[in-house]
Structure formats: C-alpha cells, structure tokens
C-alpha cells in the first residue's frame, strides 16, 4: 500500500483557506453565541415568567435537536417558509452556529450565575443597587471567571461541530476535504490530514484556555482557602 500524501498537499493553499474559514466561523459563532447566551441566561433566570419560558423553549429546542437538522432547516426550510430565495451559505452557517452556540453558552452562564452565593446579590441589593447593577458589578464578574473552562470546552465543541455546515457546501475545512477526496479518491490521506488539522486547532485552544484560567483564576478569591 502506497500513501499518496503529495496529492493532498497539492491542495495545501485550499486546505489552509478551509482552516481559515473554520476558524472564522467558530470565532464569530461563539462570539455571537456568547452575547445570545448571556441575554438568554438572564431571561431564563428572570422572575418574569413569559421571558423565562421563552428562553427555556429556545434552549430546549436547540439542545434537543441535532445541529445538522438545524442547519438544513435554516438553509433550506426557512427560505421555503418565507417564500424567498436561498440565503447566502456563509450567512446561514454563521447564523445557525451562533444560535446553536447561544443555547449551550446560556446554560454555562446560568450555572455560573447560580453558583454565586445568593448572599452576594442580597448584599448588593441592600446597598440600594438595582438588580441589573448587582448583576453587572457583583455577580457577573465572579460568574465569568468560573465560566472560562466550560466556555473553552464550548469553543472546542463548536470548532468540531462547524464541520457539519459542509452539508450545505460551505467550504470550510471539512468541505475542502470532501472536495479533495472527490478528486483523487484518497480518503485516508485526505481525512487524516483534515483530522490532524482539527486536532492541532483544538489542542491549541485548550492550551490557550488553561492559560486564561491561570491568569483570571488569580482573581477568583472565593475559591482559594487560607
């Protein structure tokens, strides 16, 4: 059996372009997902029942259905429903991944916020702060620090899951691999290269996250014991 990696590496610029798109998709999706997640977690925790219910429906729907179905539903289903022509692929990918990420991130924030002792909220409110001031200056800064490790995991999961947008032919790393494989029928060489590139990206991120944890962890005095 003769490996023919040179056939794969012929496409190196295209592969790098795929890596770039994958990173872009993931960064943008998690960034937007973080904003959606923060808002959703606050709605979910609010005492205003309709808001909390709405947030819960969103999170349950996203977490209870496969991402691939969500991608297809958005890209093919929604234009049909609205009677418009197809969305841009990149736009669809970013939106679907962001909405998906938002649901998971909101659960991360919810857990982080709930892990802060209720005495913190009471102390802040007893000083005359509004609920939002107490959240902004007292609860969230403490909760964010505790959310860094799970947010890192979410980032890694999103990086891998972004490969699913290849189903709508969005040319990120996975789709690039499928194209190359289609040219030469060298699936092993192609997908092992693709796999190693994903592995390289995910390990880099986890290094980065543990570094961030060390830097920000210093400020989490509630966890340290005398």
């Amino acid at each position: 059996m003769q490996f023919q990696f040179e056939k794969v590496f012929q496409y190196w610029p295209m592969i790098l372009r795929g890596v770039q798109v994958t990173i872009q998709l993931t960064v943008v999706a998690v960034a937007i997902g973080t904003v959606i997640g923060l808002v959703t977690s606050l709605l979910r925790l609010s005492r205003f029942k309709p808001a909390s219910l709405l947030a819960r429906c969103y999170v349950d729907f996203i977490r209870g259905t496969p991402l691939m179905v969500q991608i297809l539903l958005f890209y093919y289903g929604l234009p049909q429903l609205l009677g418009i022509k197809a969305f841009d692929r990149y736009f669809s990918g970013v939106v679907t991944l962001s909405i998906n990420s938002g649901a998971y991130v909101s659960e991360i924030f919810r857990a982080g916020i709930q892990s802060i002792h209720h005495g913190q909220m009471e102390a802040a409110r007893s000083l005359g702060m509004t609920y939002f001031q107490a959240m902004r200056y007292v609860i969230l800064p403490q909760a964010f620090k505790r959310c860094i490790p799970p947010l890192g995991n979410e980032f890694i999961a999103m990086l891998k899951d972004s490969s699913l947008v290849s189903i709508i032919s969005l040319q990120e790393l996975m789709m690039t691999g499928r194209i190359i494989e289609g040219h030469y029928y060298r699936p092993f060489e192609t997908y092992i290269v693709v796999a190693l590139l994903y592995l390289f990206m995910t390990t880099t991120i986890s290094q980065l996250v543990s570094y961030l944890e060390r830097v920000f962890g210093k400020g989490d005095h509630s966890k340290e014991t005398a």
């Binding site: 005495g119 007292v138 800064p141 620090k145 989490d220």
Partner: peptide
C-alpha cells in the same frame, strides 16, 4: 450580614 457577604473580587 452574619456571613459578611463581602464582594470577593
């Protein structure tokens, strides 16, 4: 408060 509830950050 009994448990102080200072802001640890």
């Amino acid at each position: 408060f009994q448990r102080f509830n200072l802001f640890p950050h």
